[in-house]
Design a binder for these strands. Structure first.
Lengths: 191, 191
DNA sequence: GCTCAACGCAACTAACTGTTGCGTTGAGTG
DNA sequence: CACTCAACGCAACAGTTAGTTGCGTTGAGC
């Protein structure tokens, strides 16, 4: 990401060891409140080395989180709007219910920086997923005046709310219901 | 809550001072990660006294949160389903966007106990608000086979998602949109 | 084989949580 | 009024974790 980094080969190897250790630790504990000492031990690296690269623990966790979020999530292209939304909703559901996902989405109040990360994440995700609606419009499966991002937001919101607040399992029936509501909103008006 | 508490009059006064100090501190910092020393200072009470009543900081915060949540929220009764849902959505929006509400709803990963609190809160809230749908059904404003709790959940979810994840303001237009979607779901089928 | 940045290591400081022992206060009882 | 005993204040303490500092060690590249 930063081509200006001179850093001997050692540097890059250590970077990866640290960040993957952070992720492993977050997944193991289900919390962003990980201990720097644990990360150092898991990465086989001294604590001092970590603090030479990151200002404080927050910066460390933030870097690891950003690294994960940069992994591209493929945009579904099944040939039909229903298929695309179904696949997208399932994928989002998986992310939300995974240990790492839950830790990321729930940790918020303690850091303004993470608020930005969340907002950027969803904005980017909805932006890219809008491609689904664009293709659907070309196929005539979708009204031309549909707000793609809003439609996606309203489809994902119930999944997120149920997983984080209600605590109920994200069963396939519930996911399917959200997809159907989205399809209904995208459908041509009959009146 | 505990009738077996003998406690001289001093006890109850101190209880209230402590809990309200906790709430004030949460509102001020926007976090549940408050410092016990600060609470003690704000309550004009010694730290030891707090630890004599609550096992640890988590128990203290939990008690304060529960005390707040026990304050009854009035169920709207405007005479129309649209009016009731509009008022309900606005109230929920206010809660979600308030400093205290945001702190409560976002703090989650660090404590299993808080997960139960959230679930209980929404379950209780939707249960009581179902009365709105029951009255609407009696007035013929609502289909008889509507799942009241599900309808309310799907109306609230976008508000919560936008406030906590998207970070966008909860403007009246967005709230009104959710109310209209709920009304549409409750409406008699025309086919 | 020389150099210098990256790394390891140990010993700190600082902040916060939770504990302990003891002295002090004050509401209820005789 | 005097006595009692639980509730409270207080100070000092132990334990954990974040973050720092100074110095010795290593290893890639010239």
């Amino acid at each position: 990401m930063n081509a200006s980094t001179p850093a001997h080969r050692r540097g890059r190897v250590v970077d990866e060891k640290i960040l993957s250790a952070v992720i492993a630790e977050i997944e193991a504990t289900g919390t962003l409140s990980i201990k720097v000492d644990d990360v150092a031990a898991a990465a086989g690296v001294n604590k001092t080395t970590i603090y030479r690269r990151y200002r404080d623990r927050n910066a460390l966790v933030l870097a690891a989180v950003l690294a994960v979020m940069e992994t591209e999530v493929p945009i579904p292209d099944t040939g039909s709007l229903a298929g695309d939304l179904d696949l997208l909703a399932s994928t989002v559901g998986d992310v939300i219910t995974s240990p790492l996902g839950r830790a990321l989405l729930s940790a918020t109040a303690d850091s303004r920086a993470f608020a930005d990360v969340r907002q950027t994440y969803w904005a980017s995700r909805f932006e890219k997923a809008s491609e689904i609606l664009r293709r659907a419009t070309e196929r005539g499966e979708c009204r031309r005046d549909v707000d793609a991002k809003l439609l996606l937001e309203l489809m994902v919101a119930p999944l997120h709310f149920r997983a984080t607040q209600i605590g109920a399992p994200l069963d396939t029936a519930f996911i399917k219901l959200q997809v159907e509501r989205a399809l209904h909103a995208a459908a041509q008006r009959d009146d």
